[in-house]
């Protein structure tokens, strides 16, 4: 390793400060005794207690979780199928157009996606609620899943599938027994991506949610407009904690797997 020069140290510090100081402040103030967000009055966890009493927040959290689970699962199924078909179908008429259309929502402004979905739901007379948010989130997160999965499928050795067919599998069995288990890590990351996208989406959710169902980001956003409360800081801290734990676990697991695989491969080489 090169020793860090003072220039690198400074850039690193500034970069990290830029990224994390706002969050640190938020976490710090969630433990503030005072109701005034800008005045430190000693350590307390009382806002976390109050959060648990807040029916509206808990409801919104529950809706958000439901929406995230359903939409990310649906998006993963659809996105994986789309990626598989795009990579495997070879050349067919209009292929470029199709694959372009799958990825278009990635660059589409969210406001437009939200608005068009709103018009659709009104047009077909669907009452806005959990169902419409799930549908909307599925639509836009599906293309993210499809990007992640197809980048894995590109490097997938197709002869594995042919071997499965050769040994008596139908196409569907070959996918279920061979392809899916092997690309599972990509599918899972696709799911996680869709899940977090759904968790923090504000724009599309505000177009497609109704009075019967509000998600947490909408709730937080409307509450903040009346002033920041320590309760919201506490809620945000919990969300940060959940995301942090998730990310660290995922990276630890994959790192451990890579290390173990490498060790085993080396052992196999030595034994040969």
């Amino acid at each position: 390793m090169n020793r860090l020069s003072w220039f690198n140290v400074v850039s690193l510090t500034l970069g990290f400060a830029f990224l994390y100081i706002p969050m640190l402040i938020l976490i710090l103030y969630s433990f503030n005794e005072s109701k005034l967000v800008t005045v430190w009055a000693g350590f307390s966890t009382k806002w976390y207690g109050e959060l648990l009493q807040n029916e509206a927040f808990l409801n919104a959290a529950w809706v958000t979780l439901k929406v995230a689970v359903f939409s990310s699962t649906l998006a993963t199924v659809l996105g994986t199928i789309a990626a598989y078909v795009m990579i495997r179908s070879g050349k067919f008429f209009g292929r470029t157009l199709f694959s372009g259309m799958i990825y278009a929502p990635l660059v589409m402004p969210e406001v437009i996606t939200g608005l068009s979905l709103l018009l659709l739901f009104i047009g077909i007379g669907l009452d806005r609620g959990v169902l419409t948010i799930v549908l909307a989130h599925t639509t836009f997160s599906m293309c993210y899943v499809s990007v992640v999965v197809s980048s894995r499928l590109v490097t997938f050795d197709q002869s594995l599938e042919e071997a499965a067919l050769d040994l008596g599998c139908s196409q569907a069995e070959a996918f279920r027994l061979v392809t899916l288990p092997i690309i599972a890590p990509a599918v899972i990351s696709g799911w996680l991506l869709a899940f977090t996208l759904s968790l923090d989406d504000l724009v599309i959710a505000s177009f497609t949610s109704g009075p019967s169902a509000t998600t947490l980001p909408i709730k937080i956003f409307s509450a903040v407009r009346l002033g920041v409360s320590p309760e919201i800081n506490a809620l945000s801290t919990i969300m940060i904690a959940i995301v942090t734990v998730g990310v660290i676990t995922a990276s630890l697991v994959s790192k451990q797997q890579a290390v173990r695989q490498k060790k085993e491969e080396q052992a196999a080489e030595r034994a040969a």
Binding site: D157, S159, L160, E162, A163, A164, L165, D166, L167, G168, C169, S170, L177, V178, P181, I182
Partner: peptide
């Protein structure tokens, strides 16, 4: 292909990486 009494040993072996040697052989 899955209905032919023909089996192929692939140039790249195409072993299923997520299955053990035993399960690879038992697959068919």
């Amino acid at each position: 292909p899955n209905k032919r009494a023909v089996n192929m040993m692939f140039q790249s072996y195409a072993l299923f990486p997520h299955l053990s040697v035993w399960e690879n052989i038992a697959f068919g």
